[in-house]
Amino acid sequence: MKNIATIFFLLFGIIAMNAQSFESLWNTGKENTTVKIIKTGDLFEGFLDSSDNKKAPIGKLLIKDIKQSDGFYEGKIYVVKKKKWYKAKFELKSNILIITIYSGLMKKTVEWKKQN
């Protein structure tokens, strides 16, 4: 029984650490723009936090319906230039968030760096 409890707490700790590293402030690498990802209920959401672009809609929801799935996260990302939501996959690699955006048969990958 102690072994089962130990395994449960170990797995819970790993999941909690993963969620905390995803839940952060991320620099998109364009115009000093940052997106803040937070957990709301069982899902994650990301909001535009700041940008040097004066036309950037600060506070706008850019990432939604994000849930963890087999070592990565899946959900939707809003592409401001296209004014459209796209399916996306999010992978954490140390302090880098690799985002693959899918549009039909096409896909694009971008990297965001964790803000300190």
Results as ranks from 00 to 15, higher is better:
T40H: 10
S24G: 12
E31I: 01
I58A: 02
K67C: 04
K67R: 13
N116W: 08
D70K: 12
F8D: 15
T109F: 05
L25H: 06
M1E: 12
F90K: 08
A88E: 04
S51P: 00
A5H: 14
K39N: 09
I99R: 09
A5V: 15
S50H: 02
L25P: 06
T28V: 02
S103Q: 11
Y86H: 09
Q68L: 05
K64H: 05
L43W: 02
K54A: 11
T28L: 03
L61W: 01
D42S: 13
W26V: 02
S21E: 12
K55R: 06
K83W: 07
G13H: 07
S21V: 15
K54L: 11
E74P: 05
T28N: 01
I15T: 11
T100P: 05
K89Y: 03
I7D: 12
S51Q: 00
L92H: 04
G13K: 14
K82Y: 10
D49N: 15
F90S: 05
Q68K: 10
F22W: 10
I38Q: 13
G13M: 14
M106E: 08
F44H: 11
F9A: 13
T6F: 11
N3T: 11
E111T: 13
K113T: 14
K107W: 07
F8P: 04
G46H: 01
G29K: 02
Y86V: 05
K84L: 12
G71Q: 09
K87D: 14
L61C: 02
S24A: 08
W85E: 04
I15Q: 09
I14R: 05
G104N: 08
G75P: 05
A16Y: 14
I14M: 13
I15L: 12
T34R: 07
G75N: 04
K64R: 15
